[in-house]
């Protein structure tokens, strides 16, 4: 089936088998390997991207379901003037160790602030419950998200 998806601002068209998962399409057809596959069972959130501005797990969405929609991946966050404020906050607060969960974590965090620009610490923890990190113990991730929120980092 012929699909057309706007990825990070540019429309990409391709022929896909209906069973192609969005995450595979992004990594293999669009060539954007920043989005990771962690669990492949909808649990870990490593594959989180934005679909029409909302955080979703791209391992649990068919590429054909995203036909005609806009997808933002981690590659699409930074602007001409450098890192997105959330990326900068993760760097400043050491919100990552191995970095595997980070693309999904950052996308989920940006989505969270879009819906709740001034979350409490509890709301950050609940808002990120769909993202697992095997390294950092979450403390610095939560600190980074709160710092980004304080600087108005939803964008």
């Amino acid at each position: 089936m012929r699909i057309s998806i706007e990825v990070n601002g540019a429309v990409q068209q391709s022929d896909v088998e209906p069973r192609t998962l969005l995450v595979h399409w992004l990594r293999e057809q669009a060539g954007l390997t920043g989005t990771n596959i962690g669990c492949d069972s909808s649990s870990c959130g490593a594959c989180t991207v934005h679909l029409d501005g909302e955080a979703v797990k791209s391992c649990t969405i068919l590429a054909v379901q995203a036909d005609g929609c806009a997808v933002t991946t981690i590659e699409g966050l930074a602007g001409p003037d450098g890192l997105h404020p959330m990326q900068q906050a993760f760097a400043d607060h050491h919100g990552l160790q191995c970095g595997f969960c980070t693309p999904g974590m950052v996308m989920a965090a940006v989505g969270l602030l879009r819906e709740n620009p001034a979350p409490t610490e509890d709301e950050v923890r609940t808002g990120l419950e769909g993202n697992l990190c095997r390294c950092t113990g979450y403390h610095n991730i939560v600190a980074a998200v709160l710092a980004a929120a304080a600087r108005g980092g939803g964008r």
Binding site: S42, L51, A55, V56, K57, L112, E115, E129, G130
Partner: peptide, 9 residues
């Protein structure tokens, strides 16, 4: 229900 990504879909 699940997490926010699940609730968006």
């Amino acid at each position: 229900v699940g997490d926010s990504q699940v609730r968006h879909r």
